[in-house]
Design a protein around this nucleic acid. Structure first.
Length: 727
RNA sequence: GCGCGCUUAGCUCAGUUGGUAGAGCAGCGCUUUUACACAGCGAAGGUCGGGGGUUCAAAUCCCUCAGCGCGCACCA
């Protein structure tokens, strides 16, 4: 047999990778049905399934996505080689707010506002953008070598997922878990929508704490950072045990605050901290969460004074229609002029901002849809959603890697409040609720909740859409066909591993556990593997705002090859810890690919006359190395099962280079040249190469598959060979 | 305020039941030997953040302090 001429040239990752991916894709082996049909996996083999955390259709994939694809592809390829029924299900996320605001920004450049277009036309634009992003993403994922079953691809906003969403909404509504309520919510004045608690980020900012009285004769001074909201005050709260103020509790006062008449009652409430400011708190029920709660308890009036654009809606020309920040300056001036201001001090304050738009959150009272996380659910053993989320992790049915995140998870659930799910944006799953008020309903509104629009005239559907995480929460089973009881659902759920970044533990993982436990009464996944954030060499979080410093995964792949990027992302990267990605490392692992290529060339040249049907036995020296590799296989097989990919990759790297290439190949040269146990040496070269190609395949799939394709007596693709065990 | 993580060779990081410190990259020296100069070989480099404790033995367990990072809560 002649040496394949490919081997005579240096390894060219760029040319090879595209060809190899096509080979895999055409083989159909990404689809477990094909694997079963062709005898790669047994029909009754254990399943191994992963749903891809769907990338947002907001553009393209970044290094974070590349990392997630690499880790999952390693798991999936390893499982497939073990003969498991292996499914990796891809998809994309409509990412409601993120995508809509992206398109709004693009339109803005053309001078178009979404209201100019109208809902329908705007949504068309968003869908076009989403489709383009989707195509880019799929293309990129393929370039990254992802062995996903594209035939099962899903989208969080396609028809099937929409049915899942509506079915869920209706069931939750019927069970009394979804309700409509008027209360203080996080309003994003820039995004013009409500957002959930988890979508806010608190930012530390310098701020001024003002201490003053409402009027000259008012007995108590209060402290606040937002004097402009005081036109909506209805009470002053003091601690019940604060002796300074006991005599005033229960008294009521009329004042005119910066031109606005206000009526203030002095109340006692344990929420108040005696030591903060003056120990007295002006209660603004419409614009503060805590004040709202106090107002409910003490039966106080709620007076909204700020609107959705963060502008004042009360007062005279000095403050009316002014932005809150401008109104604040006016009120401060007025307080100073009136001699009411007692103190102005600089403080550091944590201000909640919107995760997506960066705008300062304006707490506003609004009528929104919520999920009740505390209500006991009858057909779930009288447990609440909170308990359903907590239980499987506590009982070890779901294990989180690294396990320190279990504590974080518990802590989040303990502090969890009802989940606000309605959003005032256009792109997303429209809330399946219809309203009607007719003379017959006597001014009261009729409500209909259902999968389809109700019969009859006059019904108007809720304008709002659902929080994007509502549909994401269904992902492990909506992708498998639920609410239909499909074969896939039976075959692949609960999924084996959920692999994602630790930053979406609450957003997504918790919501998936909630939905799965509630809707189908089982866990969504057995294991959660959390990777860290990808950072640049100087420690910055990799993101587009970094511009040139951010590494584009496709650039890197073009330059050094996918296999090199994979090794750089896996070695030295442990779950939960951030990864600093340095181009130098990637360059280093490109050398490794080259080493594999050259060593393989040598082995294939030396063993071309080897009788593969009758491989000679090893001499004593070679037998030792044969057994050393067996030992290594034993170790790494165990470590693969423990998700210790960094260790495995490093061991394989080290063994291939410093044992196989440095020692075994070097020794074989001498033996073959001197014709001293040359057969044994050749046998060892060949068997070790075969074994190492298999073991390395999940980590460096392209180059190993390419070398495999050159081997004389292969019967199939390397990707479906059996994972090597002791021989 | 509560909690978590990190601190190991110049840089980036491994180090899972405690048993004489590991890898990659960079740097240094030598070698163009026919798989590979996208290489090989060799040497150098660390009181494992400080202090204390448990132990025959601690990077590893416990306490404490410090620096950095993160999460949650508060946010008048």
């Amino acid at each position: 047999m002649e040496i394949n001429e490919k081997l005579l040239k240096p390894y060219n990752a760029k040319d090879t990778e595209e060809r190899i991916y096509k080979l895999w894709e055409d083989s159909g082996f990404f689809n477990p049905d094909v694997c079963i049909e062709k005898g790669i996996a047994e029909k009754d083999a254990k399943h191994f399934s992963i749903v891809l955390p769907p990338p947002n259709v907001t553009g393209s994939l970044h290094t974070g996505h590349a990392l997630m694809i690499v880790i999952q592809d390693i798991m999936v390829r390893h499982a497939r080689m073990q003969g498991l029924r292996t499914l990796w299900l891809p998809g994309t996320d409509h990412a409601a707010i993120a995508t809509q605001s992206k398109v709004e920004k693009i339109l803005e450049k053309e001078g178009i506002r979404k209201n100019d277009l109208g809902r329908e036309e705007f949504l068309k634009r968003v869908e076009n953008f989403a489709n383009e992003s989707h195509d880019t993403i799929v293309n990129q994922a393929k370039k990254m070598g992802a062995s996903m079953d594209w035939s099962r691809e899903a989208f969080t906003l396609d028809e099937k997922r929409n049915l899942a969403v509506k079915t869920t909404f209706k069931k939750m509504y019927d069970d009394g878990l979804i309700y409509r309520g008027y209360r203080i919510v996080n309003w994003d004045p820039k995004g013009q929508t409500v957002i959930s608690d988890d979508e806010t980020i608190s930012e530390e900012r310098k701020s001024k704490l003002y201490t003053f009285k409402y009027g000259k004769d008012f007995p108590i001074a209060i402290s606040t950072t937002r004097p402009e909201t005081k036109v909506g005050d209805v009470a002053v709260a003091v601690h019940p045990e604060d002796e300074r103020y006991t005599e005033f509790v229960g008294k009521e006062y009329n004042e005119v605050f910066c031109g606005v008449p206000i009526h203030i009652k002095i109340i006692a409430d344990e929420h108040v901290e005696k030591d903060f400011g003056t120990g007295a708190l002006g209660v603004t029920p419409a614009h503060s969460q805590i004040d709202w709660e106090m107002s409910q308890k003490h039966k106080l009036r709620v007076i909204p004074v700020i609107n959705e654009y963060a502008k004042m809606i009360v007062g005279d020309e000095r403050i009316l229609n002014k932005k809150t920040t401008d109104a604040r300056a006016t009120v401060v001036e007025w307080l100073q002029a009136e001699g009411l201001m007692e103190k102005e001090e600089d403080i550091m304050q944590n201000v909640p901002t919107a995760e997506r738009t960066g705008a300062v959150i304006e707490p506003l009272p609004k009528l929104q849809w919520f999920i009740d996380v505390n209500k006991k659910i009858k057909d779930r053993g009288d447990k609440s959603l909170k308990e359903l989320m907590l239980e499987p992790v506590r009982e070890g049915k779901i294990s989180i890697i690294p396990d320190r995140f279990e504590k974080v998870y518990y802590n989040w659930i303990e502090n969890l409040r009802d989940w606000c799910i309605s959003r005032q944006i256009w792109y997303g799953h429209r809330i399946p609720v219809w309203y009607r008020s007719t003379p017959l309903t006597a001014g009261k509104e009729e409500i209909y909740v259902g999968i389809e629009a109700p019969d009859g005239d006059g019904w108007i559907q809720d304008e709002d859409t659902l929080d994007t995480w509502f549909s994401s929460g269904l992902w492990t089973f909506s992708t498998l066909g639920w609410p239909e009881q499909t074969k896939d659902l039976k075959d692949y759920h609960p999924t084996t591993v959920l692999e994602t970044g630790h930053d979406i533990l609450f957003f997504w993982i918790a919501r998936m556990i909630l939905m799965s436990q509630y809707l189908i009464g089982e866990i969504p996944f057995e294991n959660v593997y959390l990777h860290g954030m990808v950072r640049t060499a100087d420690g910055k979080k990799m993101s587009k705002s970094l511009g040139e410093k951010a590494i584009d995964p496709l650039d890197i792949i073009g330059k050094y090859g996918n296999d090199a990027l994979r090794m750089a992302m896996i070695i030295g990267n442990t779950p939960g810890n951030d990864l600093k990605l340095d181009e130098n490392d990637i360059r280093g692992y490109a050398k490794f690919a080259n080493k594999i290529w050259n060593a393989s060339r040598f082995v294939l040249e030396q063993t071309k006359d080897l009788d593969l049907n009758n491989i000679p036995s090893f001499d004593e020296e070679d037998l030792k190395d044969h057994e050393a590799l067996n030992l290594l296989l034993e170790e790494i097989s165990k470590e693969m099962g423990e998700y210790r990919f960094s260790i495995v990759a490093e061991k394989l790297y080290h063994y291939f280079w410093h044992t196989f290439a440095d020692i075994i190949i070097e020794r074989s040269k001498k033996k073959i040249l001197e014709n001293n146990n040359a057969d044994s040496a050749k046998a060892l070269l060949y068997t070790q190469l075969i074994t190492l190609l298999k073991a390395m395949h999940p980590f460096v799939p392209f180059i190993t598959e390419e070398i495999w394709s050159i081997l004389p007596n292969k019967n199939n693709l390397l990707m479906v060979e059996k994972w090597p065990t002791k021989q």
